[in-house]
């Protein structure tokens, strides 16, 4: 799904910056699923379209980017976050999550994972809806985008301590609701 590592990602970015379409297509294949997930779990309705817009913007601005692979990933999700916020504002309300194209995960075959799939997409969405927008952004950037605390801070324009606090409170809130609603794996 993702490049072998930051160095691999950095090399791909370098090739794409030199004009390699193949390199950018590889970047698209590697990063667009995560971007799409981030947008989807944030309640974006037209995930495919917005993902394409995000990646088009990445391509347009690729010449201005400088940094390593991790920075590139953070940069891409910063763009995705801004586009998501724009979409959120445009819609002026969060869409009904049941309308989103949340797909059913396939069972992986592992007994533990099988148990985890007891949590349906609707339950996941309902739980995420318990979070404030900032908490949700932090959790999704940490989990879906796999960004570090520092990268999330950069993407959201917040201080590192604020991100840690938001993450901690988000997890506490999720845990509380999981207990109250007795959602057990």
């Amino acid at each position: 799904m993702t490049p072998d590592g930051p160095a691999d990602l950095e090399a791909l970015v370098g090739e794409a910056q030199r004009g390699s379409v193949a390199a950018f297509e590889r970047l698209y294949r590697d990063l667009s699923p995560s971007v799409a997930s981030y947008l989807r779990w944030n309640g974006v309705a037209d995930v495919e379209s917005l993902t394409n817009e995000v990646m088009a913007q990445v391509h347009r601005n690729l010449g201005r980017f400088s940094g390593d692979g991790a920075s590139f990933r953070s940069w891409v999700f910063t763009i995705a976050h801004h586009r998501m916020v724009d979409d959120r504002r445009a819609r002026s309300r969060r869409p009904a999550m049941g309308d989103a194209e949340v797909h059913e995960a396939s069972l992986v075959g592992d007994a533990e994972d099988d148990a985890l799939d007891v949590l349906s997409d609707q339950q996941l969405l309902a739980l995420l809806d318990r979070l404030s927008p900032d908490q949700r952004d932090v959790v999704l950037l940490r989990i879906v985008a796999d960004l570090s605390i520092e990268d999330v801070a950069v993407a959201l324009g917040k201080r590192r301590g604020a991100v840690k606090s938001l993450q901690h409170r988000a997890l506490a809130t999720l845990r509380r609701h999981l207990e109250r609603e007795e959602i057990e794996p």
Partner: peptide, 20 residues
Amino acid sequence: VPLAAFIAALRGRVADEPAP
């Protein structure tokens, strides 16, 4: 464990997300 299971389920969905 319930919280970790929630996160794991979310990660599982992300891993299965196809490229648009």
